[in-house]
Design a protein around this nucleic acid. Sequence first.
RNA 1: GCCCCGGUAGCUCAGCUGGAUAGAGCAGCCGCCUCCUAAGCGGCAGGUCGGACGUUCGAAUCGUCUCCGGGGCACCA
Length: 586
Amino acid sequence: MKLKPQLQALVSNALKRLVEENLLPEIDLPDINIDRTRQKEHGDFSCNIAMLLAKHVRCAPRDLAKLILDRLSAVGIVNKVELAGPGFINFFLTDEPLYQAIRDVISEGSEFGRTDIGVGQKVIVEFVSANPTGPLHVGHGRSAAYGDALARLLRAAGYQVCTEYYVNDAGRQMNILAVSVWLRYLELCGEEMDFPVNAYQGDYVWDIAASLHRSQGDALYRKISDVFVGVPPDEPLGGDRESHIDGLIERAQKLLADDYARVFDQGLNEITDNIRRDLVEFGVEFDRWFSERSLHNSGEMEKAIQTLESGGYLYEKDGAKWFRSTDFGDEKDRVIVRDNGQSTYFASDIAYHLDKLDRGFDRLIDVWGADHHGYVARVKAALQALNADRDRFEVLLVQFAVLYRGGKKLAMSTRSGEFVTLRELRSEVGNDAARFFYVMRKCEQHMDFDLDLARSRSSENPVYYVQYAHARICSVMVQLSEKKLKLANPADAKLELLTEQHEKDLMNELSRYPEVIEWAATNHEPHQIAYYLRELANGFHSYYNASQFLVEDKGLRDARLALIQATRQVLANGLGLLGVSAPESM
RNA sequence: GCCCCGGUAGCUCAGCUGGAUAGAGCAGCCGCCUCCUAAGCGGCAGGUCGGACGUUCGAAUCGUCUCCGGGGCACCA
């Protein structure tokens, strides 16, 4: 059984006795905090309940602590209890829980650390969901690494987790991509033009146009003079970039008619495939890719709008249909159907989140880029209007990652095609370093991503530190067999032979792992795992430097090997949660 | 102007929902390989926790104000 709940029960029982003895009034007891201590002199765990209650019962904290302390019943794992400082109750434990941790790791293996706080709860985690208008860049990479680690963490905490990528395969941006592809295609056919400012400029557009040209030949060719007929001028000619590109979309749809879908789908499919491959190579696989278009086709979009309409939450203004989101705390009302009859992205977003709720998820978690924070209020507003519990919906905003190379900041912009892609990052620094670096920072923290540091295969690089600990342990086991020695069943090891301080410290770290998972999962903070792993690795490296594992004494040797085997297991489990490999040699 | 995020050691960041003397990595300095991988270990040095006021027995943590940096405020996605 877990340690903290045991100690909580102990304190809780003592408080009940005080109430029975009329030394404490019957009040609502606050949660009893049991914390790991920072310093050894304070024992293993401490409780601050006396200080929290002192004021309510008008009693000096230390006096109250003494009363509680005197009523704590004796429990096997508690060696000693002390009253300390302004009123802390400090628990000193026996070594038994430490040994138990090792036995647990050995018997549970890759399952060690799992907790049950999420059992029975279905949660969907949506992340990345980048528009299929270009390759993933390093910003998406952070969302991918974070979202994936979060999903793994929630699973480890017992939640039933579904991961999903929402594909924006409808809407204006996709039309802009289609036009960009088609214009490049026309250029491949020999036409010349001023490429629109607002079109996608990246080289990948050429690639898509080229494959279109290979498969379709000149079938999609139209005279360039026809294309630009009646289209408002582009920005460089004194016009407006938005109306210019919208005009081109209209012309393309008219001139290509049914063939427009070919161009559109070529762009969509090629980029989506590319994104999917990128993510798979990065170690991120989604349970489902959810198509925005499917919401249009299934009628869910229309249904969502209807529901809002009949609830009286919509009104017409300037030819558009508005949602009264200000009624639910948003700053201003939002358009959901434009005056040209097109529904907005917001409209499909409402339908999408409604769909998630219909699928029976208890909690919806969305991981968005920080630049989307303005959308949180309106989506919550919509869900509330539709009688959904808005608190079941949670958005985690991932702040930007800024790349540095040679101490210089790298500029990025999707539209202009100037960005570092996730693929480039991975090939430069490797998957492991990329994922570890991404996940080392809490998501709401702006991140400076130092490429030189991530790339360096040296001691400066934090990811190797943890991996090295794992590899070192594997290497010890290799040495063991080279010496023709064998480890008996580690479960039978005489752990009481582990008396050195480094050994106790390391065992203590191992016993802490399930608590770290629980904390990290409830707070959606995978970075806690990264920090924990660093501390665990540090505990091991110190031990390694101080003691020899492969000693003559078989009993001691087996005990030490059981300890480092357990350490290896927990390192592997933790790295696995972050999507980082645990190499057997380096 | 309004909203979100950040401001902690030279640099990059943790800091367990308000606790005991604020931590780590890197950079700097000093030590440690006849010994299971030195991608390691130990030590030294380094901080007005942006600032002010407030709440509290107790504040890096909570509240208000303020300064600085990033982002967002579309009939774009």
